[in-house]
Design a protein around this nucleic acid. Structure first.
Lengths: 251, 251
DNA sequence: CGACGTGTTGAAGGAGCTCAATCTAAGTGG
DNA sequence: CCACTTAGATTGAGCTCCTTCAACACGTCG
């Protein structure tokens, strides 16, 4: 369906981290049917209550999952980067329980859910890798929950900056201490369970204290160790240690 | 390994909700090797950082998952009831990223992780049901995140009481408006990201306003609709609608 | 240029926290 | 059966972290 680097190659690379796949399994992944689409910054990739017949892979750009609560507030649940399968749950669950929206202009590959399901069960090794994805996703969600529930604004913010840096680095998309993150303070606030005003003050304070700097969309972390300490960040929950080629991301 | 009602029957019943299993798959589930153990209230079933070689099924009693953060605070991530597989993630992930502790005296069945993995991939229908479990678990975790991040103490508390009621009812363990919940206000506080003092005041206020009553470990919800409204509770995220025999739990 | 989205800052208020005392009920041992 | 203990619930007073409201600054883009 495509030429040199196949569109689904990033997905395959990601799955291979969890278990080595024989060539025929690799081909099966790359040969999955899909259709791509472009989404502009701010637009929805999937909406809560939808009953999508496909799983979406983020090819380029950033996105986030979120829920809207009764009083109109929005809670961002996760931030996604290229190669993330943003809604693997659609493979089995009928109704989407949250929305996914683009943080930047993005490209999506939609893979029919039946194809994903079939792949998972005809090729157990691929299925296992997909299950891994789901489980690690759950681990991130648990840490996010703890972050919101039991840390101060300053710690929450530090933690988020560390997490995103490390994930980007791990995905080969940048350096943990210097990366581009297309999120406004308003969006950061919704991710952190704070108001944009308070995020502003918190970022300002981190900057004043020589921990980070931020201008436009770029984040640079001046003192990783101190930021990790302040953010109570320890990367175990990312489960890098479960990966095959533990390239390792020593803290 | 056992006589009349087999120990793993509750697990099978749960999995069957997601997809009808042929008799031989059912037998395979019931024939899983396991060993049981008793855990006293307050004791650990699994500890963060452990590398367990088994998945634990909660046979009787209540339990909760939690993480400890830097300053000693504790965040409860989920509450579990009989028939829940409290750590399916151990089937694949090496290191546990959170702890599981007993809320009441409890019985656990430990199933070797290799057996779970093998079952999942030799019997795709069972594998699919297990994957369902993982995905629904993720959905609950997302809602929990939103609850902590964007709702007031009163709404959070109401939401939790609704969720647990409905899940107990769904599991055939009680009535949504009247159930036993062996949690102290301290534990509720750690689940809600609040202090026990504030939980006390909030519960008191809910009681004063005629929404709920609580004495010792029993919860009774006087006005379900109003509590659900206050708690911004809508049960879609529990994914009952994805179940086979939609016995349905109409709100 | 004017408008809009985003970031920045101040001042005031409030939801929830801390600290600390008191109350209650269920053990537990004599 | 009662004194004693103890875990948990309850309540008050004061404080603080974060929110709300509002104004202003800055840059981009029509």
């Amino acid at each position: 369906m495509t030429k040199a680097p196949p569109v689904l190659a990033p997905m395959l690379r990601k799955l291979m981290k969890w278990s080595a796949l024989p060539p025929e399994d690799q081909c099966a992944v790359l040969d999955l049917p899909f259709s791509t689409r472009s989404v502009r910054r701010g637009n929805c990739i999937m909406r809560e209550g939808d009953e999508p017949d496909h799983c979406s892979l983020l090819i380029s750009g950033f996105a986030y999952r979120h829920k809207t609560v009764g009083d109109g507030g929005r809670q961002i649940l996760a931030v996604h980067m290229p190669a993330d399968i943003v809604d693997l749950q659609n493979a089995l669950l009928r109704t989407s329980d949250h929305s996914v929206q683009a943080l930047s202009d993005a490209t999506i590959a939609d893979i029919p859910r039946d194809a994903v399901r079939q792949l998972a069960f005809e090729r157990p090794r691929v299925g296992q890798a997909l299950w891994y994805e789901t489980l690690v996703d759950g681990s991130l969600q648990r840490e996010w929950t703890a972050n919101l529930g039991r840390r101060s604004a300053r710690a929450r913010t530090s933690h988020l900056l560390c997490e995103i840096g490390l994930r980007l680095e791990q995905a080969g998309l940048g350096h943990r201490q210097r990366y581009e993150l297309p999120m406004t303070q308003e969006e950061l606030a919704d991710a952190l369970g704070l108001t944009s005003v308070h995020v502003n003050r918190t970022l300002r304070a981190l900057s004043r204290d020589g921990l980070t700097q931020r201008q436009r969309n770029s984040v640079s972390i001046a003192d990783w160790d101190r930021l990790a300490l302040e953010g109570d960040f320890s990367p175990d929950y990312l489960h890098f240690q479960d990966q095959q080629s533990s390239v390792e991301a020593p803290l």
